[in-house]
Simulated assay, not measured.
Amino acid sequence: MIYDELLSLLSQDAVVVATVISTKGSVPREVGAKMLITCDRCIDTIGGGAGEAKVIAQAKEVLQTGEKRRIEIDLTGSPKRQTEGVCGGWMEILLERWQGDAAIVIAQQIIAELKLGRSLTLVTPFGDGHPYLLKEKGKRKKEKDSVAFIEVLEPVPILLIVGAGHVGEQLAKVAHLVGFQIAVQDDRPEWANSERYPQAAFIYSNIEQALEAFSNHLSLHVALVTRGYRYDLDALTALLNRDLPCAYIGMIGSERRVMQVYEQTKLMGISEDKLKSIYAPIGLDIGALTPAEIAVSIGAELIMLRRGGTGRSLSASLRNPK
């Protein structure tokens, strides 16, 4: 999480937070994307290339002066003016220096709330004034969008991997890489441990324990990659009876195995509507065979659902124009 990085850097010196605050057309990053710049380090990205180089250079000046800046990055590739790329769009970046005890306190509050699974609203005035958090959700003090950048910060999505076998081990690597906080559940300590799962922030021996820990988390994703039918059934029953619906439930297995689990859950009183929300067999159809390939296909499905993608090949529209 970028705010963990921010807090760590603030304990050493000032940090410029570069935030994408507006976009138009085709651009490499979305509104709210952030990059951290210090005198000798850059963390994350707002898109790379000449545009990012421009942001970094001006951020170094903001580090010295403390004066906020709003930078336009032209990616239209127009031959009539100097541009920073040819993606076809336009971005606006806000540079804000964070420094001192007040900034550390805000970063700590953000981290604490997000780790509890709560969303919160951060307001960054364009003029005088430092970033602050809204005390009551939905209230904006006196600021409007024209004088401040107002963003809702969402909790880091959690992926609970049920089943600590070969696929689970590879999935933890992939999902952690694309921004998920990892939790693992398995009743075998020789499989579910921090040595095999260094990415896991949480390891649980039973599904009830895991669901209790995340009972209030709004962005719980679950991948059922267990070693057998009985474990699928136990976990799925508990997940579908959760008071707060999961953001995603995917289950590994052949169509036959999936249908057997479904039939058993129906006999236990689980409605068909709930079963329709499950992604099973799990992952996108990319012809995956090995545990690592299967993990990539699951990771791709998680990204697709999180970002609103289609799973369609990006080259399809050029290869098969209408």
Results as ranks from 00 to 15, higher is better:
192 A>S: 05
216 N>R: 10
95 L>Y: 04
87 C>E: 09
91 M>L: 14
12 Q>Y: 12
33 A>R: 04
40 D>Q: 14
239 L>F: 05
268 M>L: 15
160 L>I: 08
153 L>W: 07
17 V>K: 06
74 D>W: 05
9 L>Q: 11
26 S>R: 12
99 Q>I: 13
145 D>C: 04
220 L>P: 00
272 E>R: 09
29 R>A: 03
216 N>Q: 15
28 P>D: 06
38 T>Q: 07
64 Q>H: 11
226 T>C: 14
282 I>M: 02
146 S>P: 03
169 E>W: 04
83 T>M: 07
234 D>H: 14
47 G>C: 10
76 T>Y: 07
51 G>L: 01
292 A>M: 07
282 I>F: 02
66 G>Q: 09
247 A>R: 14
77 G>A: 14
234 D>M: 11
214 F>M: 09
259 M>Q: 15
59 A>P: 02
93 I>S: 03
11 S>G: 07
197 Y>V: 05
78 S>M: 11
65 T>L: 04
298 I>P: 00
41 R>P: 01
141 K>Q: 14
95 L>R: 04
156 V>H: 03
159 L>V: 03
151 E>T: 06
256 R>M: 02
77 G>W: 12
85 G>Y: 01
271 S>G: 12
231 Y>M: 08
302 L>A: 02
211 L>A: 02
191 W>G: 00
243 D>N: 13
298 I>S: 01
195 E>R: 12
152 V>E: 15
12 Q>K: 15
118 R>T: 04
279 Y>F: 13
189 P>C: 05
109 Q>S: 12
115 K>T: 00
267 L>I: 12
230 R>M: 12
96 E>D: 15
199 Q>P: 03
71 I>F: 00
320 N>F: 15
24 K>S: 15
260 Q>E: 14
117 G>Q: 08
90 W>S: 11
49 G>W: 06
206 N>P: 03
158 I>M: 00
183 A>F: 00
263 E>W: 04
311 G>P: 07
252 I>P: 02
12 Q>T: 13
4 D>S: 09
112 A>H: 13
257 R>I: 06
45 T>A: 09
220 L>S: 00
113 E>C: 02
25 G>Q: 09
233 L>M: 09
144 K>S: 10
192 A>Q: 01
283 G>E: 01
240 L>V: 12
82 Q>T: 13
122 L>S: 05
240 L>G: 09
84 E>V: 08
44 D>G: 03
269 G>D: 12
31 V>M: 08
187 D>Q: 09
96 E>F: 01
276 K>S: 15
254 S>Y: 06
310 T>F: 04
283 G>M: 02
